[in-house]
Design a protein around this nucleic acid. Structure first.
Length: 479
DNA sequence: ATGTAC
């Protein structure tokens, strides 16, 4: 695949008419990253996405990009709502997979419990693992309310407060949700999965602020060094997975009907303004709302556990949600294209929204600074908090990276880890990890990922999002 | 990511 270096950290895949590319590909990465990206057929996926009807400006790849279903994970594709398509491959199976960061009014110097007992208690109280349900069980009518209201449903049912909604992307729900668009099969998978973690790269992590990198913003956001933090990464579980599966099937059949040809079947799509496209948007929004309710409940369960173990009141602990971001989603957003304002369906698949200062969609508390952008790394090193930058609109439809990005496939990681005891290795570094699945820790070992610092450096340099602080993990719960 | 295969 032809790749042209345009300037530092910006590479272009020129338009290949034979392939049917409508726009170029655009890759944000360092020279070192380009080498690993080029080997996996990932760039072919970036080019394939550029053939989608209605795509605007470029098929965009973030520095944490890696091979995915249809489109790479770490991709941004914006299509015109009137002339373009919507595609499940551009969102991913785990609809509204995302991450939220919570801070506490407590320094790790004042922590009077050992981390191991905190990890054990969290593991006991957080349902985790593939296919696992939790204690919260809802019937169909109630689940419909969840799908309609998102995080608000959780708040109305005692899991959090109004301020949490202010500090959640889209205030924790998409109004385009229609519970009638969701299949019975998806409902079946959702009844007992509210407030559950799942598996794979999902986690609940207690950590602390290691280094402040932007004193001004950190101060405005009330963050300080050695501050105790909570990071939660999960999505819409089986329900969202089923919604994705359902519509991949529907779109594969409707391709012919709409005369759309795609270079890869996994790019199955439909016009945004078709009955199929509308229904996918309605169902995807339900799954997104389920995920926001899920993270809201998980936050509540985690905070209750921390209060119990630390034997501290809520008032003293003072849990505060910094922000909740979605990194697998499609959103309708307005952008100026060739001097004309247009409504675009911005697909972010493993990409985080990064709104710059003064953006109209920002809540008042983040108007002057820009949006908090949360970038989790691997469980053995660190994670980052950034803030939306000035070049995000011009370069990436207000999107940044979403994590460290896989360096090894799950299969390769397991093979390489062999008989190693990853939990024991991390314990030597002072990080207590408990996982339900035997293989999960091998798949998720630090070496399976790029160094998140290198990834974050790229978006920081390009002013897509600027670094605010670095977090360090202390105990991690995984599925 | 995922009732890791319907």
């Amino acid at each position: 695949m032809k790749l042209v270096r345009k300037e530092k950290f910006i590479y272009e895949i020129p338009i290949d008419k034979e392939l049917g590319m409508r726009v170029p590909g655009l890759v944000f990465a360092s020279e070192d990253m380009i080498e690993s990206i080029e080997t996996e057929g990932v760039l072919q996926q970036v080019a394939n996405a550029a053939t989608l009807p209605g795509i605007q400006k470029a098929s965009i790849a973030m520095p944490d990009i890696h091979y995915g279903y249809g489109l790479p994970i770490g991709g941004v594709v914006a299509t015109d709502v009137d002339e373009g398509v919507i595609t499940p491959g551009g969102v991913g199976f785990d609809i509204n997979c995302g991450v939220r960061l919570i801070t506490f009014d407590i320094s790790i110097d004042d922590l009077n419990v050992d981390l191991e007992s905190l990890a054990k208690k969290l593991y006991r109280n957080i349902p985790c693992g593939v296919g696992e349900g939790g204690k919260i069980k809802v019937k169909k009518q109630e689940l419909k309310q969840v799908l309609k209201k998102g995080a608000r449903w959780a708040v109305e049912n005692g899991f959090g407060n109004e301020r949490d909604l202010e500090a959640t992307e889209s205030y924790g729900f998409l109004a385009s949700a229609d519970p009638e668009a969701v299949s019975n099969k998806a409902y079946e998978r959702g009844y007992d999965q509210l407030g559950t973690l799942g598996s794979g790269n999902h986690f609940v992590e207690i950590g602390c602020v290691e280094t402040i990198l932007n004193k001004d913003v950190a101060e405005k956001w009330g963050l300080f060094e050695k501050q105790l933090t909570l990071l939660i990464h999960t999505g819409s579980r089986g329900l969202g997975h089923q919604v994705c599966t359902d519509f991949l099937g529907i779109f594969e059949k409707s391709l012919l009907k709409y005369g759309i040809s795609v270079p890869d079947k996994q790019l199955a799509c439909a016009p945004v303004k078709s009955p199929e496209g509308n229904k996918y948007l309605a169902a995807l929004s339900c799954a997104a709302n389920f995920a926001w309710a899920n993270r809201q409940i998980l936050m509540h369960l985690s905070i209750e556990t921390i209060m119990e173990v630390l034997n501290i009141s809520r008032k003293l602990l003072n849990p505060r949600l910094v922000y909740d971001v979605a990194h697998n989603i499609v959103k309708f957003e307005r952008y100026e294209i060739d001097g004309k304002e247009r409504l675009l369906a911005v697909h972010r698949k493993g990409a985080t929204r990064a709104l710059p200062p003064n953006h109209e969609e920002l809540p008042d508390m983040y108007k002057d600074t820009g949006q908090p952008v949360i970038i989790p790394g691997d469980m053995g090193r660190y994670s980052y908090l950034l803030v939306g930058g000035k070049k995000a609109e011009e370069l990436s439809f207000n999107s940044a990276c979403h994590g460290a990005g896989r360096k090894l496939s799950r299969h390769k990681a397991i093979k390489m880890a062999q008989d190693r005891n990853i939990a024991e290795e991390l314990k030597l570094k002072g990080i207590f990890v408990i996982s339900r699945g035997k293989r999960t820790l091998k798949e998720e070992m630090p070496e399976a990922y790029k160094d998140v610092s290198d990834v974050v450096d790229v978006v920081d340099y390009l002013d897509i999002a600027k670094k605010v602080l670095k977090l360090r993990p202390l105990c991690v719960i995984k599925g």
